[in-house]
Amino acid sequence: MGLKRALAGSLLLLAACQQPASAAPERAVLAPSAAVESRESGTRSTAIFSGGCFWGIEAVFSHLKGVRSAVSGYQGGSRATAQYETVGSGRTGHAESVRVIYDPSVIRYDQLLRVFFSVGADPTQLDRQGPDVGSQYRSALVPLGAEQNRVAEAYLKQLGAAHVWPGAIVTRIEPDKGFFPAEDYHQDFAANNPDHPYIRFWDAPKVAALKRMFPGLWKPAFTRG
């Protein structure tokens, strides 16, 4: 069971939980700009990202220009097992994920990928992210359509060749089996609980890195819902 799950058993844990003394925040790594840019048309598109704890991934995407919605949820398993405590067993096939609705005329899918890997998820960690361990915390891309699949495949190949991280790229491309929103108290969690120990230690640094590394994409307001 990951540290995040232990902290999240009840919102009453806000004042009681402490980070381990040996823990260190995850390191932001500036991923390269995509060599293959997305060519999505229109002003509304949807993408799904799995990258460990959905609180932090949601918070990162919620501060991007062009993002209209970022919703925490589950992907990879069935509707019947899409509940937080069940997913926490690591046996449902689900990964904690975020569904992003965005305007591709403002921010492209390949730019979302670059932000995701730069400040959201470490693509070299297998079935874990930061303090959280288990297949439910794996990093994965779930392309919704041929264009996203084309760009995602090309970008993962590019990251593998770039050697920006010391380890091999293990992020997977997974088929869309449906996205199931998480329980209400998980939505906008970072905005609603900025003093939660997990948010302050693990996720606030991700948002700070986004602001520092991508000032042209950053927006101060948190997009809710």
Rank of each mutant, 00 (worst) to 15 (best):
V106S: 09
H94K: 07
K157H: 14
G130E: 06
L159H: 08
L113G: 09
A24M: 13
G76M: 02
A28W: 02
D176E: 11
Q129W: 10
V100G: 01
F116N: 03
E26Y: 01
S69A: 15
L159C: 08
R150E: 12
F201W: 12
V164H: 13
R128K: 14
L3G: 01
M213L: 15
L30R: 15
P20V: 11
R128W: 03
Y155L: 10
G51P: 06
A154Y: 07
G145V: 08
G73A: 09
P143A: 10
S10A: 13
Q83F: 15
W218N: 04
Q129I: 11
K219G: 05
V170L: 06
K157C: 10
W218P: 02
A24K: 15
G145M: 07
P166H: 11
F117I: 06
F214R: 02
C53S: 13
P197R: 11
A70E: 08
N193I: 03
Q83L: 12
P175W: 11
Q19E: 14
M213S: 04
L3D: 03
G167P: 11
G93W: 03
E58K: 03
I48G: 05
V115I: 14
I107H: 01
P131V: 06
P32S: 09
L13P: 00
D203K: 02
A23F: 08
L12Y: 11
R79D: 13
D188Y: 07
V119C: 07
P215V: 05
E26R: 14
T43P: 00
H163F: 02
R39D: 14
T86G: 00
S135R: 14
A59R: 03
A208T: 10
T81C: 05
W165L: 13
A15D: 14
G160A: 11
W202R: 02
S38G: 15
V115F: 06
M213W: 02
I169Y: 07
V29M: 15
Y109L: 02
W218G: 05
S69G: 06
Q19P: 12
S72F: 01
G76T: 02
G9F: 09
E40G: 01
S118Q: 05
A28T: 02
F117W: 11
L112A: 10
H94V: 09
G2D: 01
G93S: 05
Y109H: 12
G93R: 05
D184H: 04
K219W: 00
D132Y: 04
A23T: 00
I199W: 01
L113C: 12
Q75E: 14
Q125H: 10
G2Q: 00
E96L: 09
T124F: 03
I199R: 00
L126I: 04
R128V: 06
D184Q: 12
H196Q: 12
R108V: 00
S105C: 03
E40P: 00
P205H: 09
L144C: 09
V60C: 04
A35Y: 00
P104V: 01
K206F: 03
F61K: 03
V170D: 04
Q136F: 04
L144N: 06
E26L: 15
G216N: 11
Q18E: 14
P143L: 08
K4S: 13
R79F: 11
G88N: 13
R200N: 00
G73L: 06
T92G: 03
G134H: 04
V115E: 08
F201S: 07
